[in-house]
Amino acid sequence: MHFVLLRLSIKLLKMKNTALAFGFLAFVLMVSTFAYLIEPETFETWFNSLYFVLTTMSTVGYGDYSPSTFSGKVLTIFIYVFGIGLLSLVIGKIIDAVADFHRRREAGQLKFQGKNHIIVINWSKKAQYAIEEILSTDSNIEVVIIDEINKHPYDKPKVYFISGDPSSLDILEQADIKNARSAIIFADARIDEPSLVDGKSLLLASTIESLAPNVHTTVEIMMEKHIQNFKHVKVNDFVLSHDAVSRLAVRSALNEGSLDIFTQLLSSQRGADVYQTTVRPEWKTYEDAFLALIKQGATLISNKGDMTINTKLNEPIPTDAKLFVICDDEVSQKINNML
């Protein structure tokens, strides 16, 4: 008998989770039906017999229902012998599945399920600061990190991890690149030669462009002379590595106190920030937009990258204009709600 139970346990352990779940459900329904058919007076309804079987299998045993006939007691012994072990096996499988899910998530082996997320490629301190800035700007944005490391580098809510070569189509599809809002490619800090770093970034940018041309791509570039190469793959924005730090240091040296202004604009966690605003129908010229926005507490600064619009306030606003303002988050939300 012990050998038979051992063989049976081994076979059950090897069963697939789906088959085991259906087997468990069939067992419960079957013995519940038998219990009701054997002692209908004791259980009164089939649901009561189901309740009796489940309490018996879970070893709770409230005692409010108990079989009185020989056949009912034999069935109860059968539930003791096989049911308790089967339930323990199912619970063990559930625990294993949950543990496996967390293990695969930490190892970056799960496919991301979502839309309008931001993909951050190549992990580094700069990538961490970027993610913190993204989440501080909008806590509802989901971020997916892609890197060849084997463990989740920043296990926080809304932050997911895909382990693998980011230039691989399979890895990018695992991160659901086609439904992403944007992608940020950071320079790989593990490569010493700047030309090789930019070469890898160029490969990543071209792969993303071929797979998801509509995704807004921002790339950190080590050498300014390589910008022209990136323009050929239609990268949307470039960030020269160390360039911003050098320029901020110069601004601070030449204009005392100006550094705090740039710091506020670079971080949504401090003071005012730059926001895009929708062009309203009644705004015919830049002056119309400027005066309307200033009354709401926002300062119009540019159309796309053109920051000279204050010299052409009488000019009409182009149909494809993208206006940017400086204000705080509360004013930005107020303006957007009015549009």
Rank of each mutant, 00 (worst) to 15 (best):
E282K: 09
M222V: 08
L203A: 14
V120G: 03
D96E: 05
L323R: 01
G199D: 05
R104I: 00
E220Q: 12
A180R: 04
G72E: 01
Y129N: 14
F47S: 10
K284D: 14
I134V: 15
K231E: 12
L29V: 06
S268K: 01
T285P: 09
E142D: 11
E282F: 13
W283K: 15
I185M: 02
N150T: 12
I118H: 07
G305K: 14
R181Q: 05
M30T: 09
V144F: 08
F43Y: 15
A244F: 07
A298E: 10
D329V: 14
D192F: 03
T308S: 11
L5N: 03
T308P: 02
D273V: 00
T69Y: 08
K312N: 11
R103Y: 15
K125F: 13
F324R: 12
V60Q: 13
K200F: 08
N179D: 02
L323A: 03
K304H: 12
D176E: 06
T42F: 01
L196I: 01
N122A: 04
L259K: 07
I91S: 10
P157K: 10
G85M: 05
L293I: 12
S206D: 11
N116S: 12
S32Q: 00
F24I: 04
A321D: 03
Q113W: 10
I162S: 14
N150P: 01
L300T: 04
G257P: 06
V4H: 00
L12V: 02
F52P: 13
A244H: 06
L89E: 12
F324Q: 08
N122H: 08
N314I: 12
S71R: 03
I119Y: 02
Q269T: 06
T285G: 07
G85A: 06
D96N: 00
D176P: 02
I317C: 07
S49R: 07
I317R: 09
V235F: 09
D100T: 06
K334P: 02
V28R: 02
L254N: 12
I141V: 11
D237C: 06
E44R: 11
E173N: 09
P67K: 02
K295F: 13
I261T: 07
I317S: 10
Q296C: 09
I185S: 00
P40Y: 04
P153S: 06
H152T: 11
G164I: 02
V4C: 01
G199H: 07
D170T: 15
E133W: 09
A175N: 10
L203F: 09
V245E: 08
W283Y: 15
K73E: 05
C327E: 02
Y80R: 09
I171Y: 09
T263Q: 10
G114W: 09
D243T: 08
Q276A: 08
D288A: 04
D328N: 11
T263V: 03
Q109D: 07
S241H: 14
F78S: 13
T263P: 00
R251K: 15
K11N: 13
I227W: 05
V98Y: 07
L5Q: 04
L50E: 06
K11R: 14
Y160R: 10
S32W: 03
K295S: 14
L89Y: 04
T33P: 03
H216S: 10
S206V: 04
I38C: 03
